[in-house]
């Protein structure tokens, strides 16, 4: 078994696929460096990072597959699941071997894996589009913190760009330690360094004057729309799994805002 290591990026993965073909590794596994256990007996090859390589693989796939299928490959990759590289490679081999007429062959384990995993990632994208909660800061920026199961920032970005075109915003993935920032015209990837007393768990000191009031209003709203006579905790938790609660103000203890006095 030949082990091909890559840097964990999508481009890197495509470069690894390129090398699998280039060096005719018939029995290969592609593994990101951060997940490689350093197995002494493995024969290791480091994928050569060349943009022309990744582009050739991608163009080749685009030529024989539909847009849905190539998109599904990318989404399945974002799952970051340990078995994803294996299935992606098997899928790509099957695609090139058959000239591409295989995307609906769900009887094939890797085709099914890609389709189902892409859908799982897509569901996570939808969840994040739902569960992002912006907090307004004193300088008029809207900040949100998320911790998604999959690496979905690249695919949620267009949604927020289209929707919040007239406000500056930032969404930060606290697990993967990077964010996306929209400055009013374009979105860019960013790292952030927090100042004293402010971190991803508490940015209250940087809040705009009305922020606490709106969080309190939202909490009140969430409480008021509940119909006690219909309580169904199972359904509630199924739709809003607990692991997301920490970034949702409506699932936090009541905020007591300092309301501005009525003039």
């Amino acid at each position: 078994m030949q082990t091909v290591l890559y840097d964990g990026s999508w481009d890197g993965f495509l470069c690894a696929v390129f090398d699998v073909y280039e060096y005719k590794f018939t029995d290969a596994q592609i593994v990101p460096e951060h997940r490689f256990n350093g197995n002494l007996f493995a024969t290791v090859h480091h994928a050569r990072m060349e943009q022309v390589h990744s582009q050739r693989v991608w163009k080749g796939l685009e030529r024989i597959l539909s847009v849905e299928a190539t998109t599904a490959l990318y989404r399945a990759f974002l799952s970051e699941e340990a078995e994803s590289e294996g299935h992606l490679l098997a899928y790509i081999r099957y695609a090139f071997a058959s000239g591409g007429n295989m995307e609906d062959d769900l009887g094939h384990a890797s085709v099914l894996y890609v389709v189902q995993t892409a859908r799982r990632v897509w569901r996570e994208k939808h969840r994040m589009e739902a569960f992002v909660r912006f907090q307004e800061t004193a300088d008029g920026m809207y900040c949100a913190f998320i911790e998604p199961d999959h690496d979905v920032l690249p695919i949620i970005s267009p949604h927020f760009e289209a929707r919040y075109a007239d406000q500056r915003w930032m969404i930060y993935d606290t697990r993967r330690k990077y964010g996306i920032y929209y400055d009013g015209s374009t979105v860019a990837e960013v790292d952030i360094s927090f100042e004293d007393k402010i971190d991803e768990h508490n940015i209250a000191p940087a809040h705009a004057p009305n922020e606490a009031a709106y969080q309190a209003l939202w909490q009140q709203y969430f409480k008021s729309v509940n119909i006690a006579a219909r309580k169904n905790t199972k359904l509630h938790v199924q739709h809003m799994p607990r692991r997301y609660w920490k970034n949702l103000p409506e699932k936090q203890p009541s905020v007591s805002p300092a309301f501005t006095k009525k003039k």
Partner: peptide
């Protein structure tokens, strides 16, 4: 270039305790 859009399915941003 304003605020918001309303296309397609619409999003459930939260779920009440009755689901």
């Amino acid at each position: 270039g304003g605020l918001g859009n309303a296309e397609g399915m619409g999003i459930c941003h939260a779920y009440t305790e009755d689901g």
